[in-house]
Write a protein that binds this DNA or RNA. Structure first.
Lengths: 192, 192
DNA sequence: ACTAACTCGTACGTTCATGTACGAGCTTTT
DNA sequence: AAAAGCTCGTACATGAACGTACGAGTTAGT
């Protein structure tokens, strides 16, 4: 939700501070979901008071960080070609999704712990819609199974992605094998 | 780890208190992973001080509750027939595992947040070993795929179970469909 | 019954991050 | 250059759990 004009009463230096804070929040929270406002302000090279001048609560900040991550992600995902064979399209979508999920897993955990129930899911409406649509198209093509609810298949793909991220983090799955493993797993779960 | 003789200097009423506390902890933590020691003592019908007399820290208590849940679970799981066709055996194992996972998901989350890194996984050594062995047997039978690491397949089954539990909790998957959905999903992920 | 163990209330001390209040001094903007 | 907006330190208030200390009363074991 970049609002260049809606709230353009902000001065240029404020704009800069906000950007640095959000960026620092993304970075820090992506490695430690429990990073404090103090940590984040410090990493942003900004006083804690400045931070509170722009974000009333820690939750606000976490949400802003997640929003930013999602916006960035959308830039990548929205440019993927999802036409043609659904299986191939899924492979392409997964390759990009995997990187994004792995990168922001901890940030997501932070948001889940601080934002109101369901908010995080709502924020993922766009990527979820994209995935659901591709799966549905695959089902119509006869490439994907239809014996399980589409909703469940969408969720399942998410769980596989997050699971793989967790395995990599824990050192039980080499990160260079992850994309392959994710792709094969998702394909078999979608084709039945 | 029931130690009937190792520490039998405990009086009968103490034994009783401990049992009630652990039981209350299991129940409460299974619905709210953030239940406080106060909540638990109250639910156990015991003073908070009594609780602290038996468990030095909250972490100790959570661990005891999880240990108890796992012990109970083992009683069920160890009696399952895992011989014969690996696919069928897996179906039987999943049916029981599903119920256990769904029931204690929140307790698990509590433990994950409070116990040292890796402890929760270590405590699951026995069920993990059982699952791994069955998968390996299925691979030898030619029933299960061998193109993905067995370790990953074991983890993946866990993620599917926990994912389904989350979907049910969120009301996105009717609980009476869950077992079916889990079984089909796991089977297709294991057969490739 | 006598001793040791257990219960449990009240009260306190601790910790830690969150968020607020105030105000002096810098930047932008116009 | 003047006004408005921003920065940011210090200091404080808050709140939530955790965990400790003390001590009087109760219950079990032998």
């Amino acid at each position: 939700m970049a609002a260049p004009s809606a709230r353009s009463r902000r001065r240029a230096d404020a704009e800069r501070s906000i950007a640095r804070i959000v960026s620092a929040a993304r970075t820090l929270l992506s490695s430690d979901p429990n990073a404090t406002t103090d940590d984040i302000a410090q990493a942003a090279g900004v006083g804690r008071m400045t931070l509170y001048g722009h974000f009333r609560t820690r939750a606000d900040l976490v949400e802003a960080a997640l929003t930013d991550a999602l916006r960035t992600g959308e830039e990548t995902l929205s440019s993927i070609d999802l036409t043609g064979d659904a299986g191939d399209a899924m492979t392409r979508l997964l390759a990009s999704s995997w990187a994004l999920v792995a990168e922001s897993a901890a940030l997501l955990a932070a948001a889940e712990g601080v934002l109101p129930e369901g908010r995080v899911r709502d924020m993922h409406a766009e990527p979820a819609r994209r995935m659901a649509e591709l799966i549905r198209r695959g089902q119509e093509q006869g490439a994907f199974r239809t014996d399980l609810p589409t909703t469940w298949l969408v969720s399942l793909v998410q769980y596989i992605l997050h699971g793989a991220a967790a395995e990599v983090r824990a050192g039980r799955l080499p990160s260079d094998e992850a994309a392959y493993v994710v792709t094969r797993s998702v394909q078999s779960v979608l084709t039945g």
